[in-house]
Amino acid sequence: MGENQQPTPFRPDRIRVSHDEREAVVERLNTAAAEGRLDFAELEARLDLALNARTYADLAPLTADLPSETPVEPLVVKGGMSGAARTGRWRVPARITVYGGMGSVKLDFTQTQCRLPEIVMEVHGQTGGVTIIIPDGWVAETADMEPGLGGFRDKTTSERLPGTPRIRLAGDGGTGGVVIRHPNSWERRMQRRGGG
């Protein structure tokens, strides 16, 4: 070092970020989109930047205009003894945990207005089993599902339409099994009639 050179000041914003820190920002952006704070184009652009961020300086601007984060609890749906269902129009959060219980659970996303790019679901078929119905154009990522005794069946297509979510499933089929599928012909007919 020459006489007049000062040591480079420490810059915390230049520290490299971890995978978990990137994921935390991705989750915060998804939540902001679910709350209507970001439109889909903004969300996609920010998600791309978050996933490619190297330093805190790259990550900080992506959430700077969002309110301070409050922990978002996942939606928990339990089949219990008599079963449970989410159908029609309902608000879809970024995280859902499902227990089939003894009575079974049915989650029908076909009439929801969902702008999230990704929904993370922890699913346990237990005794009653779980059925998940997603619209055409939505895709499911199911590599983390264990079949259990009841099995796991993915009857969805891999064709994702722009602006639609990816459902990431993890969990087990239990003894009742877990099925994820698109609407069947009867359900499609009911939707067209407006009776779904």
Rank of each mutant, 00 (worst) to 15 (best):
R89V: 07
A84M: 02
Q126G: 01
N30F: 11
D154S: 02
R91V: 10
V123N: 11
I96C: 09
A45Q: 15
R181T: 10
Y56W: 14
E159Q: 10
P71K: 10
F109M: 05
E44F: 03
T142V: 10
P7W: 03
L66D: 09
L107C: 06
T8W: 00
A34N: 15
G195M: 10
T131K: 10
K155I: 00
P61I: 11
P71G: 02
T63Q: 09
V72K: 14
D13T: 14
A34L: 05
D108F: 02
M81F: 12
G163D: 08
Q6P: 00
V120K: 13
G2K: 11
F109K: 07
D172P: 01
G151C: 07
E3A: 06
E42F: 04
F152C: 10
V92W: 04
K106Y: 08
I167M: 13
E23M: 13
F10I: 12
E187I: 00
M145K: 11
P67L: 09
E73F: 07
L116K: 10
L169T: 06
T175G: 01
G125R: 09
H124D: 08
T110F: 00
L66N: 09
G195N: 07
T70K: 15
G151R: 04
A85L: 03
E187R: 02
R188Y: 00
I133H: 03
D13L: 14
G103C: 11
K155G: 01
M121P: 02
G2M: 05
E146Y: 10
T112K: 03
R28K: 13
T63A: 12
G177R: 03
R91M: 08
G171A: 07
V25F: 05
H182A: 03
R181S: 03
G150H: 08
P74G: 09
A32V: 08
K106W: 08
A143S: 14
R193F: 05
M81K: 13
E27D: 15
V98N: 07
T164P: 02
R16E: 15
M81N: 14
A33I: 03
S185I: 00
P165S: 11
I134T: 04
A24P: 09
Y56K: 12
L49V: 08
R37I: 05
R89G: 01
N4K: 05
V178Q: 11
